[in-house]
């Protein structure tokens, strides 16, 4: 993607990680925003890409809900005493 020029869907999606992380120069960001203003498909893609990251992070909710199986806890305790 070059500075201050219109970009394609392929170029926009190729740099989407930098776009969502706010890691783009002003020129590249302007080009990305300009592309979004004219491309509903990339608007949908960008939104679902962000949602994908949010959904990944939800998995940590399971950490506090998981309990250690009794037999595994016993085995760990046994190994400690060896």
């Amino acid at each position: 993607m070059t500075e201050q020029k219109s970009i394609t869907c392929e170029e926009f999606i190729g740099a989407l990680d930098e776009y969502v992380a706010g890691d783009m120069s002003d020129g590249r960001r302007s080009a990305a925003v300009e592309h979004l203003l004219g491309c509903r498909s990339c608007v949908a893609y960008e939104e679902s890409y962000r949602r994908t990251i949010e959904l990944e992070k939800q998995l940590t909710r399971d950490d506090l809900r998981t309990s250690l199986p009794v037999e595994l806890a016993r085995e760990i305790e046994r190994q400690r005493k060896v």
């Binding site: 869907c9 999606i13 509903r40 498909s41 990339c42 608007v43 893609y45 939104e47 949602r51 959904l55």
Partner: peptide, 19 residues
Amino acid sequence: PRFRSDGHQIESSVPWHGV
């Protein structure tokens, strides 16, 4: 995602709902 030779998406993306 796949793209045509002109750089457009081959299959248009559609919004997710209810997330």
